[in-house]
Amino acid sequence: AAVVLAAMQGVDPETKAYLHTTIIFYHEKDGVEHHGFLRRSCADVPSWNLDALRPVVDVAIAQSHNKPQADRSQPGELDGPQVSPGELNGPQVYFNPVEVFPAFRPGFTEFKPANITPELYIKRPQLLFSMDPVEREKRKSYAESEVLLFETVLQHNEHDNIVKYHGCIVVDGRVTGLVLEKLPEMLLMRCLDTTRPLNVDDIIAQVQSALDHLHTKLHVRDKDGDKDAAMVHVPFCHNDINMQNIMITKNGDREVAKLVDFDSCVREGLPL
């Protein structure tokens, strides 16, 4: 098993936007010590090369080895206590799918994984904090709310500035992923490249148009897929408009904004 020596997160000094995480680890195999690092970064962030990272790794290793045994008390540190199941470097945890994934309901659109193309993206639930039963239940409810919204509302009320939904991935009667159009760039990351001008007025007008659509123009389908006569022009609120939930794609030379992430989207007046 590997032991984490240090973990660092990089943020943009001006926008405070997340850029990358680096994890430096140690493991022993056949009596030989190995050190390594894992790095996760957002798109368009220049990668460090190994030479730049080496001094950081060396310092982390030296600090870890020089610590008195008594101070090595954090789970996952070199010679520290055993980590619990589900923790970083700990034993794997198996969840009951019923507690994690929403049920596939009759009338939902199943999308077969074999038909996935490079133009599509599968949104899957993040399970990182699902060890906590309260958090697990919350996340399942977000996933439930989002698939229901795509299936009964957004699929039948498409808009140029809202991500297109193609169906859901189903495993053993549970919805394990949503199939959406793949969108190349998050608005947050687009803003880091100021060398390319951005038509701010146009982007804001497009997001406003998507919001007007959500707020005033939607109808809801009933369980048979028919228009629900009582549910016409139902206002919905996105409730999580921010730089990370707007994606940017291109239509010719024009940059097009698309709203994503509808797991907080509810009918106007309903509690979040």
Partner: peptide, 25 residues
């Protein structure tokens, strides 16, 4: 509650616009 729900979106868009104008003055 309904009014504040719509205001949520308006406020969100307002903050996005501020960020964009900062990045692309």
């Amino acid at each position: 509650a309904a009014e504040s729900c719509l205001r949520n979106d308006e406020r969100g868009l307002q903050l996005v616009e501020e960020e964009l104008r900062k990045a692309f003055p």
